[in-house]
């Protein structure tokens, strides 16, 4: 697969803080990758380096095999930045029209507005838009570029539930058109449905890298729940056992073993259910210092 984005041991320090610490990452053309991490994990710094807005202190960063500034100037990459603003005094359509004129192979303005869910607001002035509408407009500025690679830094910030759903639908359209998409987020639920690869960042390093299901399993514990009469004793089960209102909950790394031992016991259990690890829990496990699970999760 052709490489759209490559970071090779990229490091960025700000004073005494190392925001990105020897980060190596390759993203193939056409893939949709989530950059997952808490605040301060190095997501925005990574995006800044990929856009050539920040110069790495060490290592190499390339976009489509070029230095980032060149890729930006050639219109090969477009980004929705976290702290960027918009030009007041003009309408949404005028602003998207401006962006359109900067790129070599842009989408029609109307199509970009449609994708961003702004068709009805094409004539609205930028300064009269709500936070969510401004956020959609920023997406329209990226969408209209028709760039091969799109970077989205916390794109759904300031969007409500409906807005987020519409946003991801639009983004999947862009992905289906063969674009490479890298989005940074700390919303875990967004990752699983929208990315085919997750890179978990913690303290500027890759804590885990793999497909979403794999990350989920690598990081967290499954939950086994069942009912049982209070007076019956449980066999020894691997994991953390808790009883509440007639329900027993076992948090475990080995759900199969729990079920096997339970089935082999005499306990009159009922209503058995096994749920996979929650992404929240995986994420916490992966980003906690020196977690053995994090080591296990380095699947690449």
């Amino acid at each position: 697969m052709e490489t759209a984005i490559a970071l090779d041991r990229a490091t960025k320090r700000f004073g005494g803080i190392t925001a990105v610490d020897g980060l190596s990452l390759e993203i193939g053309r056409g893939s949709t990758v989530a950059l997952l991490g808490a605040n301060g994990a190095g997501k925005s710094t990574t995006v800044g380096m990929l856009m050539g807005l920040l110069q790495p202190d060490a290592g190499r960063v390339t976009v489509a095999g070029r230095p980032p500034r060149q890729a930006v100037a050639e219109g090969r990459i477009a980004a929705m930045l976290q702290d960027s603003g918009l030009m007041p005094g003009v309408t949404a359509a005028e602003l998207v029209g401006l962006a359109r004129r900067m790129y070599p192979a842009p989408l029609p303005t109307a199509e970009a507005l449609e994708l961003a869910g702004l068709r009805e607001l094409a004539g609205r002035r930028v300064e009269r838009m709500s936070g969510g509408q401004a956020q959609r407009l920023k997406f329209a500025l990226v969408a209209v570029a028709g760039a091969q690679t799109m970077l989205l830094d916390e794109p759904t910030r300031a969007l409500d539930v409906q807005g987020r759903r519409e946003f991801w639908a639009a983004m999947r359209n862009c992905a289906a058109a063969g674009r490479t998409i890298l989005f940074a987020t700390h919303y875990l639920d967004e990752v699983e449905e929208n990315a085919d690869r997750v890179v978990v960042l913690a303290r500027g390093r890759v804590a885990a890298d793999g497909d979403p299901a794999r990350i989920r399993e690598a990081g967290g514990r499954a939950v086994v729940r069942f009912r049982r009469p209070a007076d019956e004793a449980l066999p020894a089960l691997p994991g953390e056992v808790a009883d509440e209102r007639g329900w027993t909950t076992v948090r475990t790394c080995a759900p199969d073993d729990v079920v096997r031992r339970l089935a082999a016991s005499d306990v009159a259990w009922s209503d058995l259910r096994v749920s996979p690890p929650s992404l929240d829990e995986s994420f916490l496990a992966l980003t906690t210092t020196a977690s053995p699970l994090a080591e296990e999760a380095r699947v690449r």
């Binding site: 050639e74 960027s84 603003g85 500025l141």
Partner: peptide, 18 residues
């Protein structure tokens, strides 16, 4: 001055415009 503070110039720096 306003565009510098609002981040519009940052947005432009991420676009193909000098």
């Amino acid at each position: 001055a306003h565009e510098r503070a609002s981040g519009w110039l940052d947005q432009l720096r991420a676009m193909p415009v000098t």
